[in-house]
Simulated assay, not measured.
Amino acid sequence: MRREKSCGALVFRPNEESYDLILLRHRFGGHWSFPKGHVEQGENEQQTAMREVKEETGVSITLLDGFRESVEYFPKPGVKKQVVYFLGRALEDKLVRQEEEISEVRWVPIHQAGEMVTFSNDKRLIRLAKKRLGLPQ
């Protein structure tokens, strides 16, 4: 069994009522999810998450303490993938899509994000992020 590891972040910004999250639609597969990517040699998990968010969305982030969630799945036969997610506050609002991998990127109100994401693991991550941000479930 081959193992792969990626890291990413649920990226938020405050809005008038609550928070928005960045969601992106992957060009391959068409699913809505969060920015993430493979760990490069010499990087730790946090560095990978911050780099991938910047590459895929154009947004720099700071990571909140106390949020590190891991998801595991099998993207293809013989491959087990672990993705570690952090919660990151956006330092800017303007989104710049990475055209090679991402077909669409947008800010979505956090209370609508759970309906947009494709996978149940991502729905769970949004619930955990809302809890960490002190929002009602």
Rank of each mutant, 00 (worst) to 15 (best):
S103W: 08
E43V: 06
T48Y: 02
E115W: 12
F12C: 04
P75I: 12
A49E: 04
V117S: 01
F74G: 06
R106P: 09
R124A: 10
V105Y: 12
K5C: 11
Q112K: 14
H111C: 11
D122G: 07
D20E: 06
S70Q: 15
M116L: 15
E55N: 12
R3C: 08
P136T: 08
I126K: 03
L10D: 02
S70C: 08
F74Q: 13
E99N: 14
E101K: 13
E52S: 15
P35D: 13
Q82D: 08
P136E: 07
E40G: 11
N44Y: 03
V96N: 10
P14E: 13
P136R: 12
E101S: 14
G66F: 12
N15A: 02
L128H: 15
M1S: 14
F28L: 02
E69I: 00
K36M: 13
N44Q: 11
E52D: 08
G66V: 13
G58M: 01
E17P: 00
R89Q: 08
G29F: 06
Q98G: 08
K54R: 15
F67K: 04
G58N: 01
V71N: 02
G30V: 01
V53C: 14
Y73R: 12
R51N: 07
E100P: 09
S103M: 15
F74P: 05
F28P: 02
Q112I: 09
E4W: 12
S6I: 07
P75V: 10
S18F: 02
